[in-house]
Every structure is written in structure tokens, then in C-alpha cells.
Design a binder for these strands. Structure first.
Length: 592
RNA sequence: UGCCUCGUGGUGUAAUGGUAGCACAACUGACUCUGGAUCAGUUUGUCUAGGUUCGAGUCCUAGCGAGGCAGCCA
């Protein structure tokens, strides 16, 4: 009896810190967070972060909050909030959904004993976290910072602030307003909040060190004026905190222990720590850790470039199955488990690297191979007539639903005199090592007979339009000559029993491994990233289910597309090809 | 050229002073009623130079290289 070895627990430098903090008793359990800004759709890079944060929560008995980092009203939209919620829920469903943090709908931090708290609630009537729910608390914290003499209102224009910041190798110049009286700053800040000043006229700045070698410590801005409606707080505010101020305090308010972000925030960590320390908040404080973001080959992941593709209609939308967005990946038919496996396989480090998309493709195939139901479908049909069978011939053959999973059972497959086979499975002039059908040659029809090609029929242009073959009638599974060794086995469908389906054949969106390496990613768009064909399918596919995955044998993995619901009136089937099967013949054929 | 971070096969990652391992990719072969899957195997690596040590991918020094940082973006 074999004992399945459990998958090794993920290990990386961040999990090492978590382990150490748990062992030392610093925290009882980790509390992480995934903090997207709702200004775009989530993509495969975010999936890495989601799996890291939720993965840590589930491995160490903790919780992970979904928190919208929504401090910039001019860039954020409800559409993005909703898509992000859907994407996160899809990715963690059945895996870490029991680790998802939640708060009461509409709840904001309460003030108790001079500090802010946000109590946990049962999982009913709950919602994700929003940094914008903390604006009252954040305002109060800024006031405290001013009162402590560690922040001030600055009247310099954006241009002046920019110029006075200095450069990496040149110290900055202090603001004229740096040492203005605390009472004056307090008054001005209150009036900023009251809406007395136009955008850009004043800011609140932390008073740190204009000569610091770290730019982010040169009196960074923590509040700015923005007379703009916010998707979550409406018109309540006309001042908004900046990322550095809002993020560390949002972490603190939610009781986050390990605040995990990408490498570019490394230089912000001193500021993160400074704010929490100068506010004299009770320990233990959250700590920030940084890891290298995912850069996959043959695609682009930058928000700006994704928006370009969507807006310029180079793809059909954010959920175009060719896009590396989570919604695109989902629509393409990739199981969440495959995406999670990928996130696990690539690891977590501080080293900037490029990940071969083949690793993802392998995870998809590996997952789908185990779970997809096998079906026969012909993408590019070529008619075949079995001449030694009567026109009335009809039989039902046994077909296996999934050779990798006995419990998937069997089904019946209709067979008749007229069939369709794949055009690629016949060659009038076969290349070397071609072991499919050729004139005078034999091939096995999966689950059916060995047939021999007797005659090739062409149209006026010389195109092959029909093959006339004879079947070895005893070669069927279980028959007298069933054991005959034939090198090739091909898929087919019975012409009169087949149904049609639109198949969308997707390929990589770009032809270059690093599409933006030369700064012109649009130049490398793959013109063949989508091909639409009308396939002939075995009749059982008429009952295809949206939640199931199918392998069209020898072709690839397919799933129903969500567009199908738009066309239910004519019951048109639309399948997306998630990914092809590995094709070693294509490689062989290339060698010529 | 200021500060921060990082350099392990083609790619990604492990080895926490003690046999450089795993995965993907590539290539062989076996098997196969999916040219899939599976199985067996092969190729390729510690940035450089010193030092410490019985022993260094790991620790130290110097160099080289890569990435990040100068939004009222996050």
C-alpha cells in the first residue's frame, strides 16, 4: 500500500521571519493583508502576492485581510473594487477562504482609550477592509504628529517642493514653513479639511531630515488637498492621506503583523517605521517585508500597459483570455488550483528575475490532465467515408472519460460510415516519421477500427476534400485483430451525430519573451494569438457544463466561454482553448 | 556618480560552515488505442580576486554586474 507523501510546506525568507516571530512569542498568529489599489484589474503578479499572504495565514493559523488601499480618489473606481473582490474570492476558494479577514459592513475604527480599534465580527453582513474607512483615524493621527512637533503644514507649491527635495546625491532644502508654530499648523490643517484651500496649495509634511540619504525621509508629504469625490467615502473629504502615511497606520489599525509588499517599497520602510514609532503606538508594531514581484515571459503585467491593450481594443476587455489578468486567466479555463500551484512553484525571494511562462503552462497542464474529461472533437474537419460499411451503419462505442481517474467513468460514442478527422492527421505526401494517415496507409481510430486510406478525393483547386477508406472490421477494441500494432491513433467524430461548436484557439499574446524589452511592446503582439474555428464535436458535448474542464483528445484543454450565455437563444456552444497538449510532433516536424 | 537591495545550470529556486539538490525548458530512450500522460536517463551552475577555516555557494575584504529610489501615484 502506497503512502502519499504530503507536499512539502513552502519555505522562504518571509515565512522564516513569521516562524521566528511565532517562536519568540512576539505574535500569537500572523495577520497579513493583501492591499490592492482599486485602479485596475488584478493580474498574475497579484496572484503571487495573494497566495503568499493567504498562504502564510493558512499555514500558521492566521488571518489575511483584503484591504483596498484607496487613498487616491481620482484614480479609483467601484468597477475595480468589484472585480478585485471576485478575483480574490475565486483564487482562494476552497483553499484559504476560511482565512479571509472581515469587518462589519460600514464599520470604521472606534476610538477607545485614546486609540483606535476595529473589532472583528462574525462572517455575516461583512465586507472587505478599506483604508478610506480609516480617514477619521488617520486625520487624528496626523493631528497628533503635528502636536508632537513631528509634522507641519507646508505652503510651498508642488514645483517648489519638488525642487527643494534635492537629489539622491544632493541634500534637500528645508521648507520655509518647517518651523512654523504648532498651533498654526493645526489651524491650517483643520481649514484644509474644511475645504478652505484649493488643490495643491498646502500639504502636511512629516518633519524628518531634509539631508537624509533616503529621499523618502526628506520631509515626505502625508496629506494633500484633493477636491474630488471618492468611490467609498463620497464627498466627505477634500484632503486625502498619501500612501506612506495611510499604509503603515492601516496595518496598525487592523492588527497586521507582517506587512508584505514588493521590492520597490524597500526604501519606504524607514518611513513606515518612523511614523508608527513617532506616534508612540503600543507594541508589537507591524513590520514590512519586501519580495521580488513576478515578471512572466511572453506577456506584460504593468497596469499602464494592460490599460493600453484594453483601451486600444487590442484585446476584447480586461477578462480577455489572452491577458494575464486573473479574470482573463479564469475565463480561459485555468483552475485556481493551477494558479496557486504556480505561485508556490516559483518561490519567493528578493532577487529580481524573469519567470518562464512555461512553468505556468506546465502547472495548468498538470492540473487539467488529472481532472479534465476526455472528449473527441475535430477542429478542422476532413470527411472520411468507410466504404465497407453500409450507409445505415450505427453503433455506440465505449469511451473512457478520464484515463487518469477511473471514477470519471465511461460514455458512449456514436460511430457510423461517415466521419470527420483532423485535416492535420492526413498527409498526401507524408513528412519523415509521420505516423498518421497517408494514401495506402493505416491508422487507428480511437476506440474504433483501424482504417486504410484507399482513395483521396480533391476539389477543382486540388484541395483534399474527402478520404475513402476501408476498415478492418475485427480490429475494434475487444475484436480479433484489436491487438494489431498500428503506430498512429487519431481522434474522429461521426458526421451525422456530431454537433458544431465555436472554438476559440488562444496562443501567447506576444511573440517576444520580453515584449517590452525594447520599449515597444505593441510591436510584438502575436497576430495569431486568437484563431476561431467551427469544430465538429461528439454529441455528449451538447451538455457541457461551465464548471467542468474538457480535454479534446490530442488537441488540448477546453472550457465553455462565458459568452455562451449571450447566445443561448440558438444554443451555440463556445469553447475556449485553455492550453494545447504538449506537442512533440510539432517539434519533430519543425526539425524537418 | 548618494542610499538601499540582490548575484547558484538556459530559466526559476534549495542547500542557515560539511556530498551543490529540485522544478521548468532542452535532448535520449522505454511504454502507449491521446506524438498526451507515465517511466528511465543525459546536458548545463555557485560573478571575480583575495582572506578566515580541516572544510566556503554560505563568513570577511575588495572589485565587477543587476535592480530599486528624486509623484501632492500606490
Amino acid at each position: 500500500m502506497s503512502i502519499e507523501t504530503p507536499a512539502p510546506a513552502p519555505s522562504d525568507f518571509i515565512r522564516d521571519f513569521v516562524k521566528a516571530d511565532l517562536a519568540s512569542g512576539k505574535y500569537k498568529a500572523p495577520h497579513t493583508r493583501f492591499p490592492p489599489e482599486p485602479n485596475g484589474y488584478l493580474h498574475i503578479g497579484h496572484a503571487k502576492s495573494i497566495c503568499l499572504n493567504f498562504g502564510i495565514a493558512r499555514e500558521f493559523g492566521g488571518i489575511c485581510n483584503l484591504r483596498f488601499d484607496d487613498t487616491n480618489p481620482t484614480k479609483e473606481e467601484v468597477e475595480y473594487v468589484e472585480s478585485i473582490i471576485a478575483d480574490v474570492n475565486w483564487l482562494i476558494a476552497g483553499w484559504a477562504d476560511d482565512r479571509l479577514g472581515y469587518k462589519a459592513k460600514g464599520a470604521a475604527p472606534e476610538k477607545r482609550a485614546g486609540d483606535f480599534y476595529l473589532p472583528a465580527v462574525p462572517i455575516t453582513n461583512c465586507e472587505p477592509f478599506y483604508a478610506s474607512d480609516y480617514f477619521d483615524a488617520l486625520y487624528e493621527y496626523a493631528v497628533q504628529l503635528i502636536k508632537k512637533g513631528r509634522a507641519y503644514v507646508c505652503d510651498h507649491t508642488p514645483e517648489e517642493v519638488d525642487r527643494m527635495r534635492g537629489a539622491p546625491d544632493r541634500a534637500g532644502e528645508p521648507s520655509k514653513y518647517r518651523d512654523r508654530p504648532i498651533a498654526e499648523s493645526l489651524d491650517l490643517f483643520a481649514r484644509m479639511k474644511a475645504g478652505e484651500f484649493p488643490d495643491g496649495t498646502r500639504t502636511v509634511r512629516a518633519k524628518i531630515d531634509m539631508a537624509s540619504s533616503n529621499i523618502w525621509l526628506r520631509d515626505p508629504l502625508i496629506y494633500r488637498i484633493r477636491h474630488a469625490e471618492h468611490h467609498h467615502t463620497g464627498n466627505k473629504w477634500c484632503i486625502y492621506p498619501l500612501y506612506d502615511f495611510a499604509h503603515c497606520l492601516s496595518d496598525y489599525i487592523e492588527g497586521i503583523t507582517h506587512s508584505i509588499c514588493t521590492l520597490e517599497f524597500e526604501v519606504h520602510r524607514p518611513l513606515y517605521d518612523w511614523i508608527l514609532e513617532k506616534l508612540d503606538l503600543p507594541r508589537p508594531l507591524p513590520h514590512q517585508y519586501e519580495f521580488a514581484k513576478l515578471i512572466p515571459t511572453y506577456t506584460i503585467v504593468s497596469k499602464r500597459k494592460l490599460i493600453t491593450l484594453v483601451n486600444e481594443k487590442l484585446v476584447t476587455g480586461w477578462d480577455d483570455p489572452r491577458l494575464p489578468t486573473i479574470s482573463g486567466i479564469r475565463r480561459r479555463g485555468v483552475p485556481a488550483s493551477a494558479l496557486r500551484q504556480f505561485a508556490y512553484n516559483i518561490g519567493v525571494t528578493k532577487y529580481n528575475s524573469v519567470t518562464d511562462i512555461a512553468v505556468f503552462e506546465h502547472c495548468i497542464r498538470d492540473d487539467l490532465n488529472k481532472h479534465a474529461l476526455r472528449r473527441l472533437a475535430v477542429l478542422r474537419p476532413l470527411k472520411v467515408v468507410i466504404t465497407n460499411l453500409p450507409e445505415t451503419h450505427a453503433e455506440q462505442l465505449d469511451a473512457i472519460n478520464n484515463p487518469e481517474d477511473e471514477t470519471a467513468g465511461k460514455r458512449k460514442l456514436p460511430f457510423s460510415r461517415e466521419l470527420y478527422i483532423e485535416q492535420d492527421d492526413f498527409a498526401e505526401v507524408p513528412p519523415p516519421k509521420f505516423f498518421r494517415l497517408k494514401p495506402g496507409g493505416e491508422v487507428r481510430l480511437k476506440y474504433a477500427y483501424i482504417i486504410k486510406c484507399d482513395e483521396v478525393i480533391k476539389d477543382a483547386t486540388g484541395k483534399v476534400i474527402e478520404l475513402r477508406c476501408t476498415a478492418d472490421l475485427t480490429s475494434k477494441t475487444g475484436g480479433a485483430t484489436a491487438g494489431r500494432k498500428i503506430k498512429g491513433t487519431i481522434h474522429w467524430v461521426s458526421a451525422k451525430d456530431s454537433i458544431e461548436a465555436e472554438c476559440r484557439l488562444y496562443d501567447r499574446l506576444f511573440t517576444a519573451a520580453e515584449p517590452d524589452a525594447d520599449g515597444d511592446f505593441k510591436k510584438h503582439l502575436n497576430p495569431h494569438s486568437l484563431e476561431v474555428v467551427t469544430a465538429k464535436c461528439e454529441p455528449s458535448l451538447a451538455d457541457a457544463k461551465a464548471e467542468l474542464r474538457y480535454q479534446f483528445e490530442r488537441l488540448g484543454y477546453f472550457c465553455l466561454d462565458s459568452d455562451r450565455k449571450l447566445t443561448t437563444e440558438n444554443r451555440k456552444l463556445i469553447f475556449n482553448r485553455t492550453i494545447t497538449l504538449k506537442d512533440t510532433w510539432a517539434k519533430e516536424a519543425k526539425k524537418g
